[in-house]
Simulated scan of single mutants.
Amino acid sequence: MDQDHRAREALVAEALGDISELLDRVEGLAPTLSSTCEAVTQASKQLEAQVAALESRMKRLADHAQDVAVKHIAQRTRELMHAAAEAEHQSMAALARALFLSELNPSLKSLLRAANDCARYQSSPRINWWACALSAVASAILVGVLAIQTLSP
């Protein structure tokens, strides 16, 4: 038993030596762990500062993008409104021309026909110049009134 007891003591002594060696190593790591902890803390603080700066830059970028989008939408809306107004103007002008031709053309032809008839029969005693002139003036007044009514909004 003595031998078993000695073997145990040797094992315990060897284990104590190993534990002592491990403790020495752990104590040697303490400064390294401390400096590593400080480096991680410093990196964390730097990262927080960079994130804060990035947040403000992203906010400015988003605000700028919003301003550009609003200006683009406003410009495009103005262009569409001008195009619609121009199309409406052209449509109304075309309608006015069509109405003018459909309503006034027959009156103008009648006026020309009456003037031509008066000129053709100028030597005839049956044609009264006053009647021709009165007919021409009446036709001209009629054409003017129709033109004003057609072109007025």
Score class of each variant (00 low, 15 high):
96 A>S: 14
96 A>T: 14
96 A>P: 00
96 A>M: 15
97 R>I: 09
97 R>Q: 15
97 R>T: 05
100 F>Q: 06
101 L>S: 15
101 L>A: 07
102 S>K: 13
102 S>P: 02
103 E>K: 15
103 E>D: 13
104 L>A: 11
104 L>N: 07
105 N>R: 10
105 N>Q: 13
106 P>V: 06
106 P>A: 04
107 S>Y: 04
107 S>V: 15
107 S>M: 15
107 S>K: 13
108 L>H: 06
108 L>A: 05
109 K>M: 10
110 S>A: 15
110 S>R: 10
110 S>F: 02
111 L>Q: 06
111 L>M: 08
111 L>T: 01
111 L>S: 06
111 L>N: 03
112 L>M: 12
112 L>W: 02
113 R>E: 06
113 R>D: 10
113 R>C: 06
114 A>P: 00
114 A>R: 01
114 A>H: 07
114 A>G: 04
115 A>M: 13
115 A>Q: 03
115 A>F: 02
116 N>I: 13
116 N>Y: 05
116 N>C: 11
117 D>T: 06
117 D>H: 09
117 D>C: 01
118 C>R: 00
118 C>V: 01
118 C>F: 02
118 C>L: 06
118 C>M: 03
119 A>G: 11
119 A>E: 15
120 R>S: 14
120 R>L: 15
120 R>N: 14
120 R>Y: 13
121 Y>V: 06
121 Y>T: 10
121 Y>C: 10
121 Y>R: 15
121 Y>A: 06
121 Y>D: 10
121 Y>W: 13
121 Y>I: 07
122 Q>W: 06
122 Q>Y: 10
123 S>M: 07
123 S>C: 08
123 S>V: 03
123 S>G: 13
124 S>E: 05
124 S>I: 00
125 P>T: 11
125 P>M: 01
125 P>Y: 02
126 R>E: 13
126 R>H: 05
126 R>N: 08
126 R>V: 11
127 I>D: 00
127 I>Q: 01
127 I>R: 00
128 N>F: 05
128 N>P: 05
128 N>L: 07
128 N>C: 14
128 N>H: 11
129 W>D: 07
129 W>F: 09
129 W>G: 14
129 W>A: 11
130 W>C: 03
131 A>M: 04
132 C>K: 00
132 C>F: 00
132 C>Q: 03
